[in-house]
Each structure stands twice: as structure tokens, then as C-alpha cells.
């Protein structure tokens, strides 16, 4: 591997790692901080991607503004959906054991898949990359890099900064962290923990759906797409240390590098490299890289 190829592979790894963080960030909130084993996370991602596909024509004709207004409307919609979902289903799960959480969230996967099949059908659909991001940057004599992927990376970096700021520097972040370590205590301090959790859940849903919307032009939308990201998201959150945002970031980047170079260096074992890395890290640090609290 010459230097240029090596550098391009590093860029690929970084870009994939950031994308993983984006996809897993919602799970960090819902599973990491709120403690609900949310198997439906992949479905949230899928819902976002399908929103990007299905809403586009309607928004284009009524609002205009292309992909970015779709993102905005989708984001608002997903906050609402997340809020309602928490009220209707997830609010009953906090005190239940893991088995019940798994059962209900697995049930939701089936419901969402079936709804998707009824509403949009079972075909594969493409989502147009917005005009101004459609170009590409030359990297080597033949290889080019799509601008949209760079845009996604930039979005991820902005998201990382935003999440750090909210959690470490704001009162809201403080309350969320406090709620994660002791619900009753926070409640007795006069904070409406139920409302707080509803907001955090809505944010978690919105992040997952946002990831789906942003990924849709690159990955296209198709049945079962959520299941493919679900496992890798759990891997990221578990390696990073449950409840830790910086842990999730480090883990996502690590997985990005392991996956990219695994495919190049040990192609025959590429499928297990990520899980091997997870096993090694958990043997070394059973609570993940950065344990919260």
C-alpha cells in the first residue's frame, strides 16, 4: 500500500467512523443514558431514511428548498414522533427488566417494518443528493471523493461538538446526567423527571431519524435497512462505555478504522474483525473504554 492509498484509507476510516457515531448517537441517549435496551433503534433510523424519500416530493411542491427543508421538516416530525412514542410505549419500560424491554422493542421493529411495507412498499428507492453537494473532489489520478460524504462528516463533527456542549455545559445536560445516575433523587429535587426523559427520548429518536435522513442519499432506502445498523450501533455504545458520549465517539472512530483496514489487510476475516476488537476491549475493560459516572 503506497502512501496515497494509505491516506485515502485513513480518510475512509475517519469518514465511516463519524457516520457510525451519527447513527449510534441516538442509541447512546436511549440505551446509554436512559437505560432502555432499544432494539427498535434501527427502525428509527429506517423511519428517518424513508421520511427523506417519501416527504421530498410533498415538501418540494409546498415549501421548496430541496433536501435541506426536507431535513428540517423531518427533524421536527421525528421529535414529535419520538415524544409520542415515549408517552405511549417507552415510559412504561424504565422500571421493567431487560427481557420486557427487549420483547417490546422487538415487537416495535415488526410493527414498523410492516407499516413501511404497507405505506411505501418493498422496493429499493434512491434519494437524490442535493444539487450543490453533488460534485466530487479528486484524490488520486482516478479516485474522487464525493462532496456529500465530506458534508456528512462535517455534520457529524458539528453534532459531536453540540452534544458535548449540551451535556457538559448546560443545565439540561446536568439534569440528564443526574437523572441517569439517580432518578428518585432528581425527582425529589423538584425536577419533572418524566418530562425530562420524554425530551431526551425524543432527542434520541430524532438523532436516529436524522442519521437515516442524512444517510439516505448515500445508502438508498430499502426494506430491512435498519436491522443492518442496529448491531453495529450496540457495538459502538458498548465499547465506548454505556452512557458516555466521548466513549461512543472514540468507539465509533475505532470501529471505522478496524473495519476499513480489516477489509484491506485481512479480507478473509473482515466480517469478524469488529467483533474481535469488541471482545478484546471488553476483556481489557469490561465496562467499555469510558465508563460514565
Amino acid at each position: 500500500m503506497d502512501l496515497t492509498t494509505f491516506l485515502i484509507q485513513c480518510l475512509n476510516a475517519l469518514q465511516y467512523g463519524l457516520l457510525l457515531f451519527l447513527v449510534a448517537s441516538g442509541l447512546t441517549l436511549i440505551f446509554g443514558i436512559m437505560g432502555v435496551i432499544n432494539l427498535a433503534h434501527g427502525s428509527f433510523y429506517m423511519i428517518g431514511a424513508y421520511m427523506a424519500y417519501a416527504l421530498a416530493p410533498a415538501i418540494e411542491s409546498s415549501l421548496g428548498g430541496g433536501f435541506f427543508s426536507v431535513l428540517l421538516v423531518g427533524l421536527v416530525l421525528s421529535v414529535v414522533i419520538g415524544y409520542v412514542l415515549e408517552w405511549a410505549f417507552y415510559s412504561y419500560l424504565y422500571d421493567r427488566d431487560h427481557l420486557q424491554q427487549v420483547l417490546m422493542t422487538y415487537g416495535l421493529i415488526l410493527v414498523f417494518e410492516e407499516l413501511r411495507s404497507l405505506l411505501v412498499g418493498d422496493d429499493v428507492y434512491g434519494v437524490q443528493i442535493p444539487e450543490i453537494l453533488a460534485g466530487s473532489v479528486p484524490l488520486s489520478e482516478v479516485m474522487t471523493y464525493p462532496v456529500y460524504r465530506l458534508f456528512v462528516s462535517a455534520l457529524c463533527i458539528a453534532l459531536v461538538a453540540g452534544m458535548f456542549y449540551v451535556f457538559a455545559r448546560t443545565r439540561l445536560g446536568m439534569m440528564i446526567r443526574a437523572g441517569a445516575s439517580n432518578r428518585e433523587m432528581v425527582q425529589s429535587l423538584g425536577i419533572d423527571i418524566n418530562f425530562l426523559y420524554r425530551v431526551v427520548f425524543a432527542a434520541g429518536f430524532a438523532l436516529a431519524a436524522f442519521a437515516g435522513m442524512v444517510a439516505a442519499p448515500v445508502s438508498s432506502v430499502y426494506p430491512g435497512m435498519g436491522n443492518e445498523v442496529l448491531i453495529i450501533c450496540f457495538v459502538v455504545v458498548v465499547i465506548g462505555g454505556i452512557g458516555s458520549i466521548q466513549g461512543a465517539l472514540v468507539a465509533a472512530l475505532l470501529i471505522g478504522f478496524v473495519d476499513t483496514f480489516g477489509k484491506v489487510i485481512v479480507p478473509d476475516a473482515a466480517g469478524v474483525m469488529v467483533y474481535l476488537a469488541m471482545a478484546v476491549i471488553l476483556l481489557w475493560k469490561p465496562d467499555g473504554l469510558f465508563k460514565a459516572g
Partner: peptide, 28 residues
């Protein structure tokens, strides 16, 4: 996630590429 292998292809400079994928994977 094909990016790493696409980079490999660019570096190897073949005359042509043979691929099999289906459904969502084929689109991507």
C-alpha cells in the same frame, strides 16, 4: 460499506471490474 475496497480497486488499476450485489447493496 464499500469505500475501503473501492480505494483498493483504484490503486490496482484493473481493466474492468466484476461485481455481484443485490437489492439495497446493489444500489449502494
Amino acid at each position: 460499506e464499500f469505500q475501503a475496497l473501492l480505494t483498493q480497486i483504484a490503486a490496482a488499476k484493473p481493466d474492468a471490474v466484476f461485481a455481484f450485489f443485490a437489492g439495497g447493496g446493489a444500489v449502494k
